[in-house]
């Protein structure tokens, strides 16, 4: 046994050389979380968006991974899996010129104006009262 234990040291959050934070093979990982869970509708849509846009050739899974890695370890503490995915998909679509930031901003405002819930959105812009 040695008194040094370099391979279990947590690497710095950001660094310009050496092992990057996401390259975790061989580090102490702690317990495995075995929660079973279902996915929300928006999460399924993010997954579908990634499949559709990468199939169209706008980016590859490598581009998806690159953005996830570049977010840094803080993102893995504060954002859920598909929150990180949608950030990465958006970054890749901006880089490949599918839309501009201005177009994205306008679309986000348009979508936000529909309302806060799927129910509101289904009313096609009215105040959310049920027509039934």
């Amino acid at each position: 046994m040695t008194d040094t234990n370099d391979k279990t040291d947590t690497p710095p959050a950001t660094q310009t050389d050496g092992r990057r934070w996401h390259d975790m093979g061989g580090l102490e990982g702690g317990p495995i979380v075995a929660d079973d869970h279902d996915f929300a509708l928006w999460e399924k849509r993010v997954d579908a968006l990634q499949v559709i846009t990468s199939t169209k050739g706008y980016f590859t899974v490598d581009g998806l991974r690159r953005c996830l890695e570049d977010m840094g370890p803080e993102a893995f503490e504060t954002m859920s899996y598909y929150e990180r995915w949608v950030v990465s998909v958006n970054q890749n679509l901006l880089e490949s010129g599918v839309y501009s930031n201005t177009e994205l901003g306008a679309k986000m405002a348009e979508v936000a104006a529909r309302g806060l819930t799927y129910g509101d959105c289904a009313q096609d812009g009215d105040s959310g009262h049920d027509h039934d």
């Binding site: 660094q15 050389d17 092992r19 990057r20 390259d23 093979g25 061989g26 991974r65």
Partner: peptide
């Protein structure tokens, strides 16, 4: 080598 970008070769190897 340890360049800072997207690399598939794990550091432990």
């Amino acid at each position: 080598m340890m360049p800072p970008g997207h690399i598939r070769t794990p550091a432990y190897l």
